[in-house]
Design a protein around this nucleic acid. Sequence first.
DNA 1: AAAGACGACAACCGCGCTCCA
DNA 2: TTGGAGCGCGGTTGTCGTCTT
Length: 294
Amino acid sequence: MGRPPCCDKVGIKKGPWTPEEDIILVSYIQQHGPGNWRSVPTNTGLSRCSKSCRLRWTNYLRPGIRRGNFTPHEEGMIIHLQALLGNKWAAIASYLPQRTDNDIKNYWNTHLKKKLNKFQSGMETHSSSTATSRLVSKSLNIERIKSLEFASTSSTTTTTTYASSTENISRLLQGWMRSPPKTTNNNNNSRKAEHEGGGLIESESVLLFENMNNVTWDKSTCESTSNGVCEEDGDKVKVAVTPENYNNKQKADVNTNSKNNNPPLSFLEKWLLDESCAGQVEEIKQMMELSSIF
DNA sequence: AAAGACGACAACCGCGCTCCA
DNA sequence: TTGGAGCGCGGTTGTCGTCTT
């Protein structure tokens, strides 16, 4: 007998989130921090299941998320990482800190998979191209490196190889303030506009900050990031959250992680992040465009 | 202009893992 | 040791907008 589903209770709301629900959820998380999702619907009064709250926060509301407009470099990384890791979207997302696994998964399913299929069918008829042979060569290298990596790390857990999604949550905070809303005529469009800038529209963000209470950070973090707007409370301090000092805190966290926690880049990671890769992506994209003609 | 087809993506669902009592 | 709770992940579905006929 399996576990009963968490979201089958009567009265649980499903479907798209409204700006009002977003504001309630973000305000709550600003006060209490992410986690303990089970208690979120109870404490906020939201008629949503805990999983829905977590998903909404993780994929759309948490600061630092960039949505849409994947760069060629990001495309290239996704393509190579997918070849390397398979559909391990969370692992892939750990290499693209501003992207969520869901976003990457959707982008792969709707764009890249089709492009690659086209490209591969084009390769079959034009296998003599330099760019193509280089791509094939790199793909073969991926297979070789795959076996080497797994051989060398088989005694360790995967958590030492990839940053967890939770760690990503505290990364870059750019984009906290979203693009201004587009002029729209109906609710559907306004919902669309809400997402296109990366989440809440600016006026909603302002409302959010107006509703925020103080949060507690480490004293040292506060001193270095919040321009002295701190109120001491034992070894913790309360901080008036603004986009600026929140961003500063996240930058400090990133620096701390890079100094203390993050393992050095493996050969594979360096290889994947190599700028020359982006150049190859351009070649790949050209090939994809070519293949679409065939 | 209308209707159907298609594409994009937000959200849901179910399973598995980890933690803890 | 075991079972329940909480959470994360990957696959899938539903909905809405755009395109095509």
